[in-house]
Design a protein around this nucleic acid. Sequence first.
DNA 1: AAATTTAAAGAACAGTGTTAACCTGTGCAA
DNA 2: TTGCACAGGTTAACACTGTTCTTTAAATTT
Lengths: 212, 212
Amino acid sequence: MGIQERKTRHKEDLRKRILEAAKKLFVTAGYEATSIRKIAQEIEFSPTTIYLYYKDKSDIIYALHQEGFLMLRQDFQPLMQVESPYERLKAIGKCYLRFGMTHPDFYEVMFMMKDPMKYLEIHCVDGEWAEGERVFDLLLQTIRDCQQDGYFKGLDTIEVAVQAWSSVHGLCSLYVSGHLRNMMEVVLDTNEQEAMVEKAFRVFVHYLELTK
Amino acid sequence: MGIQERKTRHKEDLRKRILEAAKKLFVTAGYEATSIRKIAQEIEFSPTTIYLYYKDKSDIIYALHQEGFLMLRQDFQPLMQVESPYERLKAIGKCYLRFGMTHPDFYEVMFMMKDPMKYLEIHCVDGEWAEGERVFDLLLQTIRDCQQDGYFKGLDTIEVAVQAWSSVHGLCSLYVSGHLRNMMEVVLDTNEQEAMVEKAFRVFVHYLELTK
DNA sequence: AAATTTAAAGAACAGTGTTAACCTGTGCAA
DNA sequence: TTGCACAGGTTAACACTGTTCTTTAAATTT
């Protein structure tokens, strides 16, 4: 049935077009400005049509959430080739920071907003955050490798991983939310927060080096 | 003019009652559920009356933002008596974490939401985030004291402070947003994230100890 | 050709922040 | 005492939001 195929393909196509329109609005105008009606206007369909392809708005932003994780994993992939575990760990940290700073909107959806996490709790069985798990596993494995090289002696792998994640996430989220910027303007009157993020990261790396 | 006084006092009173109603809704139902109309219903006034006392909604949430910083500073105050700078630093970190975990809604407004920061940019001259500055100064001074005791040798005070802030903020925000919870459920099937926050904090403290 | 399924749209509901226009009672000067 | 200005408060309305119910129109199947 070639007709059936073409129809389902067309349907998948529209589903994709909705997501593309949502992403366009999302990255240009931010989450606040991304409404169902504006998405509909973008693809020249009725707002209600969107509900034939996505359950609700949180379903769409969850799709973006997943797309963000795909991007992040693709950024991470080449780093897995780095042989030295510790250098790999540093590279992961740097890469994570760069991702957050170059895609602040995606970072917000992926790691800061409550909505996508609530979506998981409601729609999935329980905590089926596969995308997050995959990325975290990369971190876990790298830290395990570091421990075999003598780093993080006597420390629990998971605890080290959560702490490391918190540190880089803390920098990213303070950057994305604008809190770092405001603090910088007050403490030292500069708005070169990018430089400060890098410097703070280096301080963290300095701490890690002491564990060997 | 006793009458004039009573009137202005009554006006101040209503301004306070609006904020109290907003806070009540805020802590019981979260930010999302705190609407102008619901606040008005709570104080049994018309929604438009609120606009006679607050410029707009962001003005109200900024007031809550400030109130949160007042609470945090009050929590911090007794810690300033701790003589040992390093013990004081640890106490500040613990206190910050506890604040975020016991008042997640306030923490969100104070350190995670973009709105209050944007309010500052628009309404004030430029970066007049006095409340944040005060708290950060406490951290800065404590780290300076630590450095005199031999900690953080060869490191920049501000960079150390930003890094420390990022680390505890990272833990808090992952906790508040629910991301830590979801990750915990996947990696190790437990939802005792409070314990994990504490453990990750101890790992961080362990790092800091190595700088001496 | 008739019946049925399907995609899309229209209208509407309940909610949001916010503004302009309109009362309505109080205080004061003529 | 009358007229007036002004404060505090409300009503109605605008322009949005996400979402659902009902309806239309086209395509497919019988």
